[in-house]
């Protein structure tokens, strides 16, 4: 039964990983809009137009 002294801290560490994931999701605003992401799933990326250079650069300007 000595192994339980190892298992308990281990289980806490794993659970803490999920807690961290949840905290990240909340802070990333995933709980604020639950409707639009479902629609976004059905949309495709448009084919890039001919002069894509400018646009590619712009797409790097991400929302933080």
């Amino acid at each position: 039964m000595i192994v339980i002294f190892l298992l308990i801290p281990l289980s806490i560490v794993i659970a803490a990983g999920f807690l961290a994931a949840f905290i990240w999701a909340v802070r990333a605003g995933q709980f604020e809009d639950t409707c639009t992401p479902a629609m976004r799933l059905l949309l495709e990326e448009p084919k890039p137009p001919e002069s894509a250079d400018d646009n590619l650069e712009n797409s790097k300007l991400k929302l933080k």
Binding site: E32, C35, T36, M39, D54, N58, L61, K62
Partner: peptide
């Protein structure tokens, strides 16, 4: 339009 960055829509709002 060049210069416009990423945009995100909230459909309900």
């Amino acid at each position: 339009k060049p210069g416009v960055g990423a945009s995100q829509v909230n459909f309900l709002r």
